[in-house]
């Protein structure tokens, strides 16, 4: 396969490798050749040490393309990430090295509260599952479609594995929010929280927990995603398919409902005395505002 022929034939190659039921959509896409060359270029530029024949890449690409979408779909692809994943799937040595360094090592930061030994375990499982094929099955990394960032896709798998390991070991508590996390929902990094009397803190956590349970599921999820998991308003807007402002409003409403419920809980069930209640509620309100500002920046 000589150079010039390869260059000329990327689009032809693609058409040849898109599954027949989807190939019709890829006839007559304008500038297809250029787009493909750009994608390939991105991969080679990002990973110069990695050797990957153009045909392998285009073939891989063909497997992941939807039936329709044309040029826009190609433009949105994370070319460099897809290139790396494809090279890993075929076991290219430099690609595996790069994956280890540039992707896998960035996973632990997002695994949450996990012991160091567990982290190693998780990474080991990930290497096995992502990079090694079993029999005829290609390595899982071949499933990466290039539509979102590779790191994000890999991190999701990492968290899933943490969950699997936890349920294997009966380490179920990972799925409950520890009280401290719950309180952080209202007051991230707040030294004043440390000053709260232990019983007040406990009361606050209990009230919050009860209040959360009483919230509609959708609102609870929204607060959790935003306040505990720290997803940005923009990200939530994308996920919910709504404008940012409407998401922000929904978070705000949910938050207000939570505050109201919490206040009710603290006041009625826990029978805190007046001044203690007020100071606790004041803290809840002011800190929540603060953390909200912080996260909405």
């Amino acid at each position: 396969m000589s150079g010039p022929r390869e260059e000329e034939s990327l689009s032809a190659l693609l058409r040849a490798h898109v599954p027949p039921e989807r190939s019709a959509g890829w006839e007559g896409v304008e500038g297809l050749e250029t787009l493909l060359r750009e994608l390939l270029g991105k991969g080679r530029e990002a990973w110069p040490a990695v050797t990957l024949p153009a045909e392998t890449f285009v073939k891989h690409l063909g497997r992941h393309l939807p039936a329709e979408g044309g040029a826009e779909v190609l433009r949105q692809l994370h070319g460099a990430d897809l290139y790396l994943a494809c090279a890993c799937a075929v076991g290219e040595r430099h690609a595996l090295l790069a994956f280890e360094q540039h992707v896998l090592q960035k996973v632990p930061a997002r695994l949450g509260q996990v012991a160091a030994s567990t982290v190693d375990e998780v990474l080991q499982v990930m290497r096995q599952r992502l990079l090694l094929g079993r029999g005829d099955t290609p390595p899982r990394i071949a499933d990466y479609s290039g539509r979102g960032p590779l790191l994000s896709w890999v991190r999701i798998i990492g968290v899933r594995i943490v969950g699997e390991l936890a349920s294997l070991d009966g380490r179920q508590e990972l799925f409950d929010e520890p009280p401290e996390t719950l309180a952080r929902m209202l007051a991230p990094n707040d030294p004043e929280r440390d000053l709260l009397k232990e019983n007040s803190r406990q009361a606050l956590v209990t009230a919050l927990r009860t209040a959360l349970a009483a919230m509609p599921e959708g609102e609870r999820a929204l607060l959790r995603l935003h306040h505990i998991h720290g997803l940005t308003m923009d990200r939530l807007a994308t996920m919910y398919g709504e404008p940012r402002s409407s998401i922000a409003r929904r978070v705000m409403h949910a938050r207000e409902r939570l505050l109201k419920l919490t206040r009710g809980e603290l006041a009625s069930r826990l029978r805190l005395d007046g001044s203690e209640l007020e100071s606790l509620l004041g803290l809840v309100r002011s800190r929540l505002d603060l953390s909200l500002n912080h996260l909405m920046d």
Binding site: R110, H229, M239
Partner: peptide, 30 residues
């Protein structure tokens, strides 16, 4: 979305995948 709203595990996975601020779930700062 409907699933995620009721599934803490998926919320956690999304947090890992999203461009979130990873303060959550990390050991106490102070």
């Amino acid at each position: 979305l409907a699933h995620v709203e009721g599934c803490a595990a998926c919320q956690r996975a999304l947090a890992a995948g999203g461009d979130s601020t990873p303060t959550a779930g990390v050991p106490e700062a102070s």
